[in-house]
Structures are given as structure tokens and as C-alpha cells.
Design a protein around this nucleic acid. Structure first.
Lengths: 202, 202
DNA sequence: TGGCATAAATTGAACATTCAGTTAATTTAA
DNA sequence: TTAAATTAACTGAATGTTCAATTTATGCCA
């Protein structure tokens, strides 16, 4: 009855379960034993694949990065009209679906961990920087077409990332009865205005 | 040799040490035993004062709120020139000192905890909402003087809080070699422009 | 002023549980 | 046959919490 799997399938399976346990009980509640019980396997098997918990946590970070950088989002090459493409990008960045690419509880769990764990810190920093650099590149393109007016595209990208992350925080504490989209739309409007208006930066 | 203290001094003393241990080792490393060792007292004494760890964590949240709401910041009543008062407020909100009222690691620790702990969640939500409401009130005053132009002051306050929290995130991951102030200044400039420009919201 | 009662502060030792991790044995698949 | 996958049986340390014992401070009454 017992099915034997290979490392290629077992490792991601363990990570997926690790991820789910963190969602339910936080990193402090995510023990190797609990993950094993959830999967009906022996705890030692997890150690066998990851050697220790720190390794496994770093591996989970990589696992999440793959999820985050999945190709389905942020692909706008097919949109030829640059104006439309710009707005499609902005719509995505401030959309609910995009904000839930990774469970927000886990997202901030790793953010929190990054304060004391250099492995996590580096990985997290890397992914955010990649996203920022992607934005810079896009904005540069829009600027050449006269859609984006802000000259300092790096500053522009920094501001968008800042707004995007702050939005997560805001929706957690200040959204009250209103849905995510209500404030997200306003944030997007502001972002667009900022990028497209003349002389927004001195 | 041993000095006996009273609850009024012992409780905050324990919380301060709890706070420090979290800064150094995170919430998952902050055990009652470690706090006790740090203070050269017996672990039971901590239980005696807080009954259990969950209580103590909630008490720490209150303790930090007191720190955060300390009166020295955000007091601008003495500035009569409303224009100057407005800028003093904005300077404070985007200042390094203000952002370090509470250690950022602990700030996000409690943010992280709020996802699964309703006690923390309520307390945290309360303090952020208080701050937002304070901003609304201030902005309303500036609007009557014609300094702030944005008509939806609540939306304005929401945006400032969002920007402020996102800034923390940004400075953690994207600041690179540049100091906190560099990007904070830009964020503040943007915020001021947003609040004072005509027709920024449709 | 001095002793005594009383409550609070503090320690001590033990607890059941959970934790990550080790080592060796066994089963499965190629 | 050989290596990988999986389990079994442990370990030792750390955890939060308990209950009882002991020390310290304080107010009251003689």
C-alpha cells in the first residue's frame, strides 16, 4: 500500500506541506513532526531529505520564489499598444490576485524571519530587487513612448514597490468592512497619476 | 543582596527584557527561561506575574503601544503657523527617529503574530487606526486653511499610512548602500505633493 | 519603638510534552 | 546487486507550567 516516491517529487511535496502548516499555525507552530503527521510519513524522512530544519526553511524560501516568479503574471509582451500595456501592468500590480500569489501570512513570516536569518534575507532581497528592476525596465520603455513622464525611473519603481507592500499592510488593518479592491484602486490611481503627470519630482 | 521589587516595577521590567530578547532572537527564541536568565531571576517569577506566555505577549503589545504613543512625538499644538505645522508633521512621519520608535524587527514580529493571534491583532489594529484617525483630524484642519487640497481626508490619511509602512519594507530590502533618509525624503515629497496639489483625485 | 501577622515577592524542584536530530535497520525500486 | 526511500527506536535538551516552600517587606497594635 505504501507508495515510494523519488526525491524529485518528495521534496516539493514536503515543502508544500510545510507551507500549509505555516499558513495554519505560523513558523513557530510548524514542527517537523506536524508536517510528517500531516503527510502520514515518518519525521526522519524529512530530515533525510533536508538534513535539518534551517535547510528546509531556506528551501521553502526558494520554493516560494518559484511560485512568485511563475510566468503567468507579469507577461505583457503580447500587448502591442504600449498605453494599454502600461495599464495592464498597473492593474496587475494592484490586483487582489497578484497580492495573493503567496499567502500574506507566509509572506510576512519570511519578511519577519529575514531580520535574523541571512539566508532568508538574501533570498528575499533578491526576489524583491528583481521585481524592482523589472519595473525599471518596463518604465523605461514607457518613458520613451511618452507615457511615463517621471524621469527617475528607479525612484518611480521604488515608489511603486513601497506602495504595493504598504497596501498589504493597509488592507490587513485599515480596510474595515471594505474589500481589498476599494483602497487598492485608489492606490493604483495615485501611482498612475504619479508616473504620468509632469513635474511630479522637483 | 537580593533586591525585592514590587509588581509596579517588576512587570514592566520583565516586559522590557522580553522586548530585548525578541530583538536579539525573535519571538521563537524568546523563551521564559531565557528572559529569566537575562534578569537573574527564576522563571517561575515570570509566570507569577503574567500567568502564562500568551498573556505576557499581549501585555508586551500594550507595553509597546505605550512607547509608540508617547507624547514627545506628534505634538504640534505649539506651532501656530499652520503651514509650518503641516510640514513639521510630515517631516516627523517620514523621519528615521519616528520609524524607530519601536524596533522594526519587533514591529513586524507583532504584525506577523497578528495573523493568528486575535489579541495581538485587535491591539495592533487599534493603534494603527488611532494614528490614521489622528491624521484625518490634522488634515481636516489643514484643509480648512487651504494648505491641504485633497478633499477626501480619510483617503489621504490612508495613503500616508500605506506609504509610511511600505517605506519600512523598502528600507529593509531596497535601500542598498543609501541611508534611510534618502528614499524617505522622496516619499515625503511625494506625499506632500499629493496632499497639496489640486485635483489629485478624480 | 518593637514585635508580630499577613500578604506579596521569590525561589526550588519537579512535571509532561515537544522539539530537532542520530543511528541503525528495513523495504522498495532500478 | 546496489543505492535510494522509508521506518523504528532512541536521545538529550528545551519548553511552559505546576505547586509548595521560603524569603522579604509592610502595616498594625502594644
Amino acid at each position: 500500500m505504501r507508495k515510494t516516491q523519488t526525491a524529485a517529487t518528495r521534496r516539493p511535496e514536503i515543502l508544500e506541506n510545510f507551507y500549509q502548516v505555516i499558513i495554519a499555525e505560523g513558523i513557530e507552530g510548524a514542527s517537523i513532526g506536524k508536517i510528517a503527521k500531516r503527510m502520514n510519513i515518518h519525521p526522519s524522512l524529512i530530515i533525510h531529505y533536508f538534513k535539518n530544519k534551517k535547510n528546509m526553511t531556506a528551501a521553502l524560501a526558494d520554493f516560494l520564489i518559484e511560485k512568485y516568479e511563475a510566468p503567468e503574471f507579469l507577461r505583457f509582451d503580447h500587448i502591442e499598444d504600449m498605453e494599454k500595456r502600461f495599464h495592464a501592468l498597473m492593474d496587475t500590480i494592484f490586483s487582489f490576485e497578484w497580492s495573493r500569489t503567496i499567502d500574506p501570512g507566509v509572506h510576512f513570516c519570511f519578511y519577519y524571519l529575514s531580520f535574523r536569518n541571512p539566508d532568508i534575507r538574501n533570498r528575499y532581497e533578491h526576489i524583491i530587487r528583481r521585481f524592482r528592476d523589472y519595473l525599471i525596465e518596463e518604465f523605461e520603455g514607457y518613458r520613451q513612448k511618452g507615457i511615463v513622464k517621471m524621469s527617475n525611473t528607479r525612484m518611480a519603481a521604488d515608489l511603486i514597490v513601497t506602495l504595493m507592500e504598504g497596501l498589504e499592510f493597509h488592507s490587513h488593518f485599515l480596510s474595515e468592512d471594505q474589500p481589498f479592491e476599494h483602497f487598492a484602486d485608489k492606490a493604483r490611481e495615485l501611482a498612475v497619476k504619479m508616473l504620468t503627470a509632469d513635474g511630479i519630482t522637483a
